[in-house]
Design a protein around this nucleic acid. Sequence first.
RNA 1: GGCCUCGUAGCUCAGUGGAUAGAGCAGCAGCCUUCUAAGCUGCGGGUCAUAGGUUCGAAUCCUAUCGAGGUCACCA
Length: 619
Amino acid sequence: MRFVCRAQQHKGFTLKTYFCTSNFYLMIEQILIGKTKEAVKSLYQLDASLAQIQLQNTRKEFAGDITLVVFPFTKVSRKSPEATAAEIGDYLQANVAEVESYNVIKGFLNISIKKEYWINFLTENYTIDQFGFQQTNDNQPIVIEFSSPNTNKPLHLGHIRNNLLGFSLSRILQAAGKNVVKVNLVNDRGIHICKSMLAWQKWGNGETPESSGLKGDKLVGKYYVIFDKQYKEQIATMVADGAIPEDAAKKAQLIIEAQQLLQKWEAGDEEVIGLWKKMNGWVYEGFAKTYKTLGIEFDKTYYESQTYLHGKELVEEGVQKGVYTRRADGSVWIDLSAEGLDEKLLLRSDGTSVYMTQDLGTATQRQKEYNPEQLIYVVGNEQEYHFQVLKVVLKHLGCAWSDSIYHLSYGMVELPAGKMKSREGTVVDADDLMQEMFDTSEAMARELGKIESFDDDEAKNLYRTIGLGALKYFILKVDPKKNMMFNPSESVDFNGNTGPFIQYTYARIKSVLRKAEEANFEFTTLQSGDLLPQEKELLKKIHDFPAMLIQAADMHSPAVIANFAFELASEYNRFYHELTILKEENLPSRGLRLCLSQFTAMVISNSLWLLGIEVPERM
RNA sequence: GGCCUCGUAGCUCAGUGGAUAGAGCAGCAGCCUUCUAAGCUGCGGGUCAUAGGUUCGAAUCCUAUCGAGGUCACCA
């Protein structure tokens, strides 16, 4: 179970500057890195490492486009930062055709790139739909597990963060050229589902999703809650009669019956298996609806009922090999004190499996099936210890590939009232939350008078697109590893740094583009004048996209893309506000701005796609 | 108690050893006869938890302290 009761690192890279080629274009950063290497070799006989060549975008308050930090070279140049920067600047200006000029401020070499480079960059890329995306390779895949629900209750806000992170990351990795396999692991067996089954047998009166109109997962969840309530009452009664609370919890009739149900299940009792299949079937129907609404899908779904036995075999294998030890009571353990961890249980004394057991099974199975480059688990940070142990336990079994396991450990979602607790009714249900978002976006659209020309289907689709855009962006813009605050009533907004803001920018651009096409305006980058500051800033922001994608993939962080998308949209809105496009009388300028607009729309759309967010043509 | 995270503006968050720490929200003041105002512009708002250290340079790395959370089950 990846989720326990409530909803719910790495520093893998040091390379400062991300550089890459788009499919059809050599980016200026790559050229400058190569030539800077040459420059310091020629000037100071230094073989510079990539870490020493620090390029960054020039801050807006200074002249220039790209800045080289020259402090790392002052040791070998034995000159002041200013003099060093000037020497390197001279070299670059003489040897790089794209360099227009430079200026030096303290140890910062601010390089201005020629207009021709920028125009050429625009011309070469603005019609390339997949600008910045890498071709997917057929190498070893990356297998990414996310969602991982239990079948005894509906999906909630914690699952939403998990699903959005997993799904977005899989798209980011795919766009970065990786061969990605998305897998789900459903915890369909165990005492939790038996509790729901027992309560349904006792108090269900044959209720089904059809008879009650309740969504399947909600119905099963309802009986889980009923079990818990009745169980607590039994305990209370027993305690009132003088029992010790701990004993009562173990000896209450209901929990005994649930355990018997589990034993029957493990023994393959036909009636129990039949009920189990029926109720899980309801849950899967419910989950499928939620996933569909959320826009999440998987390449493959694993079920713990089919993998836990494999885990048991592996533990036996470990005992045979002598790497795990069986105690007198029959339980199996591994001693990890040499690794600075504790002793860990792998199999109970009664022979039943624990959490770790099935994870050994699923990991090994995936390894055999895919031989992946990396095995990613999107699971909350409360389970960091579990995955740490999992890797070591596998290693003891001789699985060298356990190093390829990567736990994407994300922070908890907190509510203003504190943690979500299902038993206290403070869980934010996934379906309810999405519906609220749809309702809010409808109310907003009506209030703003945005949908007068929309038919019903179009309008409904728009509420869905925007509501989901707001929710997904709100969650994904936060660094995955950090805990985040979710305030349902206030936090999800439609203005400012939000999904709808970015979607709106896209719709705005599309409106301009439609009008330009109707009027048969020419899209052209051939123009004589200089790029205006607004045009250039926008183009430079777009130019950053390929590097941002690589950074996001490297850091396993959709937040990088989210923040980029916001900055790009903001930049476009400024451009849009300060310059006219359709009414521009200078035709080359008009053509250029149309190309810029088209390019921006494409990159916004691709960025949001990486986050699993759709864009509306009108809003 | 051991181990692991986190602490940046009133709130939610960016900031991966580099320049004067940035956004959004909230507050205040402007901008629709003009390509979509779900937009744009301006103002105010900071002991980057605290104290040391490393470095040419620290919100960022190290140490300690304080505060918050997580984890250390024959739970998952």
